[in-house]
Design a protein around this nucleic acid. Sequence first.
DNA 1: CAGCCGTGGGC
DNA 2: TGCCCAAGGCT
Length: 291
Amino acid sequence: MGLDTDVLIDWFAEVGRDLPWREPDCSAWGVLVSEIMLQQTPVSRVQPIWLEWMARWPVPSALAAETTGEVVRAWGKLGYPRRALRLHAAATVIAQEHGDVVPSDVDTLLALPGIGAYTARAVAAFAYGKRAPVVDTNVRRVVARAVHGAGDAGPASNTRDMADVEALLPAEDAPAAKLSAALMELGALICTARSPKCADCPIYAECAWQRNGRPEYAGPAKPVQKFAGTDRQVRGLLLDVLRGAEGPVEKARLDLVWHESGQRDRCLDSLLVDGLLEQTRDGLFALPGEH
DNA sequence: CAGCCGTGGGC
DNA sequence: TGCCCAAGGCT
């Protein structure tokens, strides 16, 4: 027995959050920016930054005209700052090759930097109302429980996961796009990773996980990412100095953020390689384009 | 494909 | 408190 898509769509219309990028007049550019920012970053932290960006860079060409350093600075502490570089690069391609219009075609979107299987389909569905299997961590969890009766989703398998969701989508574009948003919202608000709120679930009666007696997750243990002491932490500390500085800084200033010089220098070098930092002629360090 | 890439909040 | 988690993508 399949899920009741009408119930989910109605539930979303009733209790879905009023997020600014869901407003009917939000541009496709606004949707794209939100999707990139929301990759691995919670809604509550994205929202204020997204509002700033939309006021400052309302079209792709406006962002493209900015230095990458300024974009990285405006990215603030959303995390994974390479996303800011990729978004800037995507905006440049959109401005130069697509007439400043965010593409609506999945394959064209996939060709843009920073846009993968999820984001391409999310933009097609949420900005353009298209039917496309939108598979994120929320949707994978909802499908694992409600459809497959498992306690949680196992390791991601792009092909299989998209086929699962594809089978749930209504034939028509508009309801399919609404269902995609509803599945994500259900995973975010009700069918959460920890302590799911099953009493409030609109598809409780059809849920295969309930029918199975709510079995524990039985798949392989998920790899846990360390953070303390990793290059990721050190890179974050280094970049944070530059975000807070007016202009270029001396290396001695950067040396203060981490005790181990080998790791520190390796991280500094990797930031230069990534294009998140630049070195000035006189050996100072700066955000790219800001010297 | 496994591992890496930031940051902060909740339990 | 430490651990888990959050609208992924890239190599």
